Amino acid sequence: MTTPDSDSVLAEQLLRFTRRVHRIQKRHIEQCGLGVTPAQSRLLRTLACYGSPPRMADLAERLEVVPRAVTTLVDGLEAGGKVRRVPDPTNRRVIRIELTDDGREALRKLRGARRSAAGEILAPLSGEQREVLGGLLDTLVDGVPDRRCG
């Protein structure tokens, strides 16, 4: 049985763990030398999930951020040649975002960085502990396994 104090301790542990995960992922992303932030990395991964180029509003919804945040991320990635804005073929007023060849290459490198970061983060756990952790995290996130891309 948990008590309010033990719940507070667990919540603090989760917050500390989240900060550790972010620090480790950021370090591994920076080591790629791509000049991409963790948020831009997440946008690239999300963008790769779409079969056809999405609208910025679609990206904002998928990333659970305000559209303005996506605009800022896209601006930075576009300046680095990793994405480009393209007009919608059926409605020229709508702008879609697509990966460039440089963006696909960056995504490949970023996937390696994420695997490396995950290995570092999960190194203290056995395979069985990792399975248990995955189940617990699924339950905490929304009660079902995460089937979203990225």
Rank of each mutant, 00 (worst) to 15 (best):
T46M: 04
L59S: 06
G150N: 10
L34D: 12
V65M: 15
L43E: 01
L133F: 10
I95W: 10
T37F: 01
S126Y: 01
T18W: 02
R16P: 09
N91A: 08
T2L: 14
L43G: 03
P53S: 04
H22E: 15
N91I: 03
P54W: 01
S52M: 07
V86Q: 02
E61R: 13
R115S: 13
E131T: 03
G119V: 07
R19A: 15
L47Q: 01
Q13L: 15
P4V: 14
G76M: 05
R27W: 09
L47S: 04
V70C: 12
V36L: 05
F17I: 08
T18Y: 04
V141L: 12
S6P: 07
L14K: 11
D146L: 09
R27V: 14
D146P: 03
P4G: 12
T3K: 05
R55N: 09
E120H: 13
R108P: 03
R147E: 07
G35C: 14
V9K: 05
M1Y: 06
R27N: 14
R20G: 10
A39K: 14
Q40S: 11
R68E: 13
D5H: 09
L77Y: 10
R45S: 09
M1L: 11
L99I: 00
E78D: 15
L137E: 07
V70K: 02
R111G: 14
M1G: 13
N91M: 05
D7S: 04
I97A: 03
R68M: 06
A48R: 00
P89H: 06
L133I: 08
A60M: 13
L77F: 14
R148W: 01
E105A: 09
A57H: 05
F17Q: 10
L34A: 11
A69E: 09
V70A: 10
A123Y: 11
V74N: 01
F17C: 08
R42L: 15
V86S: 09
L34F: 10
L77A: 12
Y50M: 06
S6Y: 05
L125V: 06
P38E: 12
L136V: 07
L107A: 04
G112Y: 01
V21E: 08
A39D: 13
